[in-house]
């Protein structure tokens, strides 16, 4: 078994990297894959909270890197899915506590026993970002349909190409179909026209996400949530399945055009 390393990044903060990482990991593990998530946001950890595992942390990523514990000791098993693990970030240190080569070594050690390694990148383009993408086989860029988030996504895609980790794949998060319809929000087409990368998922704005995040219960486990469905679809695309993009409203117009953009998700 050789795991694929997927790094979730964005440039801008607050667009939904951690939510996306938690939900993709959950959706992949719910399909029976062995998944480990690594929180690379040292000093501002969140992934443990979103997965509802905060109270189980004993050792963290920095402890592993600095040799205070074995890798297995820092891996927290999810309370719902037996094949999902989390390696939490340290809260009391900063990004410089870990180097890109530490991350490569860590992932090499994990690769043999898992199917997927998901890395939650911090915002920004500095050390933390470079730590997160160093071991990546696949880079997912999360953006919102807002000019500022798209601008940062463009910058980060350029950096990913420069690090020869490309081509990045795009997740557009928090789309509000009603606002797009009124012309008040960038459409997925507008975003794709500028960024010119493959789309791997569109997540509609969904209040369930806030509720589930606060409860530490990823929305991907909620059968009724549209956002949960969208995350499950991305997980299937990562596995190489062809899944049509879900309709977010009754208007088949722009989504119909997008459906033609579907590409295989998993193997590069």
């Amino acid at each position: 078994m050789t795991a694929k390393v997927v790094t979730v990044t964005s440039g801008k903060g607050g667009v939904g990297k951690t939510t996306a990482t938690a939900n993709l990991a959950t959706a992949l593990a719910a399909n029976g894959a062995k998944v480990v998530c690594v929180d690379a946001d040292i000093g501002l950890r969140n992934l443990d909270v979103v997965l509802g595992l905060e109270n189980r942390i004993v050792y963290d990523l920095v402890d592993v890197v600095e040799g205070r514990c074995r890798l297995r000791q820092a891996m927290i098993r999810d309370k719902r899915l037996p094949e999902l693990y989390l390696i939490p970030a340290a809260q009391t240190r900063d990004k410089n506590a870990v180097s890109p080569s530490d991350m490569v070594r860590l992932c090499d050690e994990l690769r043999g026993e898992h199917d997927w390694i998901l890395i939650d990148s911090p915002a920004g383009i500095e050390r933390g970002f470079r730590n997160a993408i160093a071991p990546a086989d696949i880079v997912l860029v999360v953006t919102n349909p807002e000019v500022s988030a798209v601008r940062d996504a463009d910058r980060i895609i350029g950096l990913i190409e420069a690090e020869e980790k490309g081509p990045a794949r795009l997740i557009i998060n928090r789309i509000k179909p009603s606002m797009v319809k009124r012309g008040e929000m960038l459409s997925a087409d507008d975003v794709l026209e500028l960024l010119a990368v493959d789309l791997v998922g569109m997540i509609p704005e969904d209040e369930n996400v806030v509720v589930s995040t606060n409860r530490g219960m990823p929305v991907a486990l909620d059968e009724r949530s549209k956002a949960g469905q969208a995350f499950r679809n991305i997980a299937r695309r990562l596995n190489g399945e062809q899944v049509p993009f879900m309709s977010m409203n009754d208007d088949g117009g722009f989504l119909g055009r997008l459906a033609r953009l579907v590409r295989p998700g998993g193997n590069r």
Partner: peptide, 20 residues
Amino acid sequence: RSGSSVKYAGHVVVIGDVNP
């Protein structure tokens, strides 16, 4: 893409987009 900068003494031809 955003953040890239090209400075050149001469003409510059880009086949592709120049993003904001």
